[in-house]
């Protein structure tokens, strides 16, 4: 049953990515050219509503469906891995115009060449995992 739930949320996510055009290379290109508010509006309003919800989760000590208190993991107190890793991701994001979510959504939409991107992304993750201890974090 739980699996069906995640499957349905996934379907909703895929539809939202297509319909918001966030899965379009053109929208990402436009965003990095600062030629439209659209993508900034999407990310900004997602953060704003997300922040409001998180505020009430903390304020009201809300529990999840498994009856566990909802807690937010604090991310590591460093900046190197975020700036370096983030920049590497950003280069790829702009180049193929898709982040990890939209990659899979585009596959469903029938753009089969995105399989090459997905495959390379898995290889990229694998190489990171192998080199992890040698990289500055």
């Amino acid at each position: 049953m739980r699996n069906l739930y995640f499957f349905i949320i996934g379907i909703a996510f895929g539809i939202i990515m297509i319909k918001s055009e966030a899965a379009s290379w053109f929208r990402i290109f436009e965003m990095f050219n600062f030629e439209s508010f659209h993508m900034y509006g999407i990310i900004g309003s997602a953060i704003a509503t997300g922040f409001t919800g998180n505020y009430f989760i903390k304020k009201l000590n809300l529990k999840d469906l498994n009856n566990n208190k909802i807690q937010f993991k604090i991310k590591e107190n460093t900046y190197r891995r975020y700036i370096i890793g983030g920049s590497i991701f950003g280069l790829g994001w702009a180049l193929v115009g898709a982040c990890p979510g939209p990659m899979f959504v585009l596959l469903g939409a029938g753009f089969y060449s995105i399989l090459i991107v997905i495959f390379s992304a898995v290889i990229g993750t694998l190489i990171y995992g192998i080199l992890k201890e040698k990289l500055p974090h």
């Binding site: 891995r81 370096i84 890793g85 983030g86 920049s87 590497i88 991701f89 950003g90 280069l91 790829g92 994001w93 180049l95 193929v96 898709a98 982040c99 990890p100 990659m103 090459i116 991107v117 997905i118 495959f119 390379s120 992304a121 898995v122 290889i123 990229g124 993750t125 694998l126 190489i127 990171y128 995992g129 990289l135």
Partner: peptide
């Protein structure tokens, strides 16, 4: 794809 996979995990 490689940059995305490597960068996101980094």
């Amino acid at each position: 794809g490689f940059l995305i996979g490597f960068g996101t995990r980094y």
